[in-house]
Design a protein around this nucleic acid. Structure first.
Lengths: 242, 242
DNA sequence: TCAAGTATACTTGTATACAAGTATTATAAA
DNA sequence: TTTATAATACTTGTATACAAGTATACTTGA
C-alpha cells in the first residue's frame, strides 16, 4: 500500500468541504491526469483503505464522479471512464451553449457591476501570472466564467454550470500547470481574450462575444495536446493499481 | 405519525432502483405536488422514520434532490425550495437550448432509425390516451424527448438531460394526471405537436422543429396553471409536517 | 419580568456492522 | 485434460453506532 502525502488538488480550496468532497476532488484529478487509467475498477473498500477513511465518504465521492461521467457505477465496482478528447470538446460545446444563452440575457440587463467584478478577477489573473501561480490563475479563470453565468440568476443554467464545473476546473488546472513554465506567452493571449469578453459584455456586442468564445475554444484545443503530454509525464514511475 | 401506503410516484417504474432512488422519487413528487411546502425543513431522522428506512438511503435521496435544486442542504436540516413557475420556465429554457443543439447535430446524420423509434413511441402515446392512462402517457412523452437527445451520442448533453429529467418527469406526470379527465382534448394537440416534431426530424427542416418546440412550450404554460390548481386540491386535508 | 448561562435534545458527518448477492477459485469427477 | 460443482472471498446496499457541533429551552439569579 502506498501512503499518499501529496495531493493533486489544492487542499486550501477545500477549506470547509466534507471528506467525500475531498476524495472526489482528488480522484477527479487523478482520473483526468491519467494517474488512474480508463477501465480501471475502483472498489469502495480499497479506496477507503487508500484514503484512510470509511466507506461512507467514498460512496459519496463515487456518486459525485458518476454524475460527472468520470466513472460508471456497476454491480461490482466502479469502472473508470476517464476524460477523452471528445469529452473536452463536448464540455466546450456546453459552455458555448450556455454562455451564449447567458449573453443574450445579459444584453437585456444592467451589466456595470458585473463588468467591475470581471475586471477585478482579470487583475487577479494578471498577478497570478506574474508570480507564475498556475493554481491561482486557474481558480480565477474558472471564477471569471462562473461570475458571468451567475449574473443572470437562472437556476437551471447555474445547475448545468455546477455539474460541468468540477471537471472543467480540474482539466484547466492540469493544463495550466503544465504550461506555466514552458509556454508562458500563452497566458497573455488568454488575458487578451478575457479582456475581449469583458468588452463584449460592456458594449453588449454579440460578435465580440462569439469571437472571444471561439478564440477561447481554439485555445483549449491546444491545451488538450499539452495535457495528454503532461499525462504521460505524470504517469511515469507510478505503479499501476489493478 | 402517518403510515403511507400510497405513493405518488409509480412504483413499477422503480423496478431495480435502490431505496435511496425510491425515496428521492417520492419526495420529489411530494415537493412538486406541493404536499411538502417550500421552506419546510426536512430532517434525516424524521424522514428515515417516515419511510421506515435507515438514514443511509435518506442521505442519498437528499443529495439527489439537492442536485436538482429542489432542496437546499444546510447545517441543520434540508430546506425545501420547491418548484416555482419561474423554475418551470427555466427548465424549458434548458430544453429549448439542448433540443435545438441536438437538432443541429441530427441534421448531419442519418435519422431514419430515430424516426422509426419515435413513431413507435408516438403510437404508444396514442394507446395510453385511449385508455386514459396518464402515467403511461407521461412516461412515453418523456421517453420521446430522451430518445431524440440520446440519438446524437453526446455525453454532456445527455448529462444535462439526466439532471433535468427527474423534475420534468414528475412535473409532467402531475400535470397529465390532472388533465386526463377534464381536458381530454389537450392530448390530441400534444400528439399533433409530436407528429410535427417527427416530421421536422425526418425532413430536417429547422423551422418545423422550432415551431414544434415553441408550441410545446406554450402548451406547458397551460400546464402550469393546471398544476397549481391541482396542488391546492391535493393539499386539502393533508396535515402539515413541521 | 428579564437576562445570562447551562443543560438537553436535537442536527449532520463519519465509522462500523451486517446481509444479500456475485465472481472466482479450488476441488472433485469423468 | 476438461467440466461441473461447491466453497470462499470478494462486492455493494442498508442499518446502526458514535462523535462533534448547534439550537433550544429551562433554570437560576437579579
Amino acid at each position: 500500500m502506498t501512503e499518499k502525502n501529496e495531493f493533486l488538488y489544492p487542499q486550501k480550496w477545500l477549506s470547509k468541504a466534507s471528506t467525500g468532497d475531498r476524495v472526489a476532488s482528488e480522484l477527479r484529478m487523478q482520473i483526468i491526469a491519467g494517474l488512474i487509467e480508463s477501465d480501471a475498477i475502483l472498489s469502495e473498500n480499497k479506496l477507503a483503505a487508500e484514503f484512510n477513511v470509511s466507506r461512507s465518504p467514498i460512496r459519496e465521492a463515487l456518486k459525485i464522479l458518476a454524475a460527472e461521467n468520470l466513472i460508471r457505477l456497476e454491480r461490482m465496482g466502479a469502472v473508470v471512464i476517464g476524460l477523452t478528447e471528445k469529452d473536452i470538446e463536448e464540455i466546450y460545446d456546453v459552455r458555448l451553449l450556455i454562455e451564449s444563452f447567458v449573453f443574450e440575457r445579459l444584453i437585456k440587463i444592467d451589466t456595470s457591476n458585473l463588468v467591475t467584478e470581471l475586471s477585478k478577477i482579470l487583475e487577479m489573473m494578471k498577478i497570478a501570472i506574474k508570480y507564475k501561480d498556475a493554481d491561482e490563475f486557474s481558480l480565477q479563470d474558472v471564477l471569471f466564467h462562473e461570475t458571468i453565468i451567475r449574473a443572470i440568476n437562472h437556476s437551471y443554467i447555474r445547475m448545468i454550470w455546477d455539474n460541468t464545473k468540477p471537471v472543467m476546473e480540474a482539466f484547466i488546472l492540469l493544463s495550466m500547470r503544465s504550461r506555466i513554465e514552458e509556454k508562458y506567452d500563452d497566458f497573455n493571449r488568454i488575458l487578451e481574450n478575457h479582456e475581449l469578453y469583458i468588452e463584449a459584455i460592456k458594449t453588449k456586442k454579440r460578435e465580440l462575444m462569439i469571437k472571444s468564445l471561439h478564440q477561447n475554444f481554439d485555445d483549449v484545443q491546444g491545451k488538450v495536446d499539452d495535457l495528454w503530454i503532461s499525462q504521460q509525464t505524470l504517469s511515469k514511475g507510478v505503479e499501476k493499481s489493478d
